[in-house]
């Protein structure tokens, strides 16, 4: 039996706006019309479910068959919960990132930094029954982009999550504690609420750190929570 309860509205200011002047690519892509508030039905309350049998895990992306990637090896662990603190079990997380020099293994990336033949830069993990996930990678490098003069993206790892419903789809980026580039980055800074920005920053964690092998970072993720009853539309709050 599908859970048909609607998802609660997002807290104002905690998500970026589509229209973000400081990020140039939004100029002709951000919609100008107000979004249509739609009630939640089966299509929105449910979503694709993935199984490791069809979507096998790729947990250690710090090496390929032919060798190990250059750079600082890291282990990233965290928990995926909903807004009520309930673990989101068995959900798929996709990650992708630049190599240690700040270059993506992607034809579109022409940054003058070396590619690493031992680093592809994409992984896939599933949360366990407690919502916990873990993967191994190398710390991505910062890289320049042309948004404005002397623009550099902070070190970051891209995340893709689906959660339990179509309405819980989330694309985000994990940053690293203490990165001096964060305050200059329009993609990070265009989230109005400081607390919501800071929650995108993974903390260094000595307990996760593996002696003589890899630095540990913790990054928890919160997906939207559901209303208490199936008959309560997010529409009925009327405060968007």
């Amino acid at each position: 039996m599908s859970d048909l309860r609607a998802f609660r509205p997002l807290v104002p200011g905690t998500q970026p706006e589509y229209d973000a002047d400081v990020y140039g690519s939004t100029k002709f892509r951000a919609p100008k019309q107000q979004l249509l508030q739609v009630p939640t039905s089966l299509t929105e309350a449910t979503g694709p479910q993935f199984s490791p049998s069809r979507y096998p895990s790729i947990i250690d992306i710090s090496k390929v068959e032919s060798g190990e990637a250059q750079g600082q090896r890291i282990v990233v662990e965290g928990q995926v919960t909903d807004e009520d603190g309930r673990p989101v079990p068995h959900t798929m997380i996709e990650i992708w990132q630049a190599n240690s020099t700040g270059r993506y293994h992607h034809d579109g990336d022409q940054h003058d930094a070396p590619l690493d033949p031992h680093f592809q830069g994409a992984g896939r993990v599933f949360t366990d029954e407690n919502g916990m996930y873990r993967y191994i990678s190398i710390k991505p490098g910062a890289y320049p982009w042309r948004n404005h003069h002397n623009a550099w993206r902070p070190n970051h790892i891209h995340y893709s999550l689906f959660g339990p419903g179509f309405a819980t789809r989330l694309i985000t980026q994990m940053y690293f504690d203490g990165d001096p580039l964060l305050k200059y980055d329009p993609i990070y800074m265009c989230i109005a609420d400081a607390g919501s920005r800071e929650r995108l920053v993974a903390g260094f964690d000595l307990d996760l750190t593996m002696p003589e092998w890899a630095l540990g970072y913790r990054f928890n993720i919160v997906l939207r929570g559901r209303n208490a009853t199936p008959f309560e539309d997010s529409n009925d709050h009327g405060d968007h």
Partner: peptide
């Protein structure tokens, strides 16, 4: 209550995903 993690752009290099 926790607050939903903020969205960030998927960027131009998402094709690293399958």
């Amino acid at each position: 209550m926790s607050i939903t993690t903020a969205s960030q752009t998927i960027g131009p290099y998402w094709h690293l995903l399958p």
